[in-house]
Amino acid sequence: MSAAKVVFNKVNKILEWFLIIIFSLLVLDVLFQVFSRYILGSSFTWTEEFARFSLIWMTILGAAYLNAKREHLSMDFLYQKLSDSNKIKASILIEILIFLFALIVMVIGGLNLVYTTLHLEQLSGTLRIPLGYIYAIMPFSGLLIMCFSVYHISNIYSNKTNQ
């Protein structure tokens, strides 16, 4: 097994466990909110904000995870009609477009958002966490998606040369 494959699998496993932890915390948070509201008769304001931030992180990291597994939503009607050589070209083009999207929107745009919110010292309403820390998941996930796209392109080329 190549070193790239080992690193790829290890990163995916870490990402998978991190997503499981975030989801578990989200479920516990919502259950606690329901319990406190209906059993204790008093709700805590921080639970709603924590749930929102957990959902943001889980969604954006989940997108990176699905990209790694190549299980993201796609419509492959036209792709299935292509010849094998054109499927390889289309796959490479798709990975390049995903790479560029992640670079421009998620990494560059995300870093700009993080910088702006940290510079303006914006804090979340209840938890008083700097919003830049919450938004930092965007460029991080973008970097992961870019790495996964490079990995997928290298796999396409190596499978092409092995045929």
Rank of each mutant, 00 (worst) to 15 (best):
T126R: 00
A68W: 12
W17D: 00
L111N: 15
A63R: 05
I96S: 11
A4W: 05
S154C: 12
V114T: 14
K160R: 15
G125A: 15
T161E: 11
R128N: 12
E71K: 02
F99P: 15
G132Y: 01
H152C: 13
F53S: 00
V11L: 03
L78G: 14
G41L: 03
S149E: 05
N67I: 00
L15F: 02
L15Q: 03
Y133P: 12
I156M: 11
A51G: 11
D29V: 05
V150G: 11
W46G: 02
I22V: 13
N112P: 05
N155K: 09
W57M: 15
E95I: 06
T126N: 07
T116R: 12
A63P: 08
L144T: 04
S74P: 00
L120A: 01
F35D: 15
T117G: 12
F32I: 03
L40Q: 06
S158R: 04
M75C: 08
F77L: 13
K5F: 05
N159E: 14
N9F: 00
L28A: 06
Y65A: 08
G110M: 09
N67K: 01
L66K: 00
G125Y: 10
L82R: 09
H152M: 14
I108F: 08
L82Y: 04
L73W: 09
L144N: 08
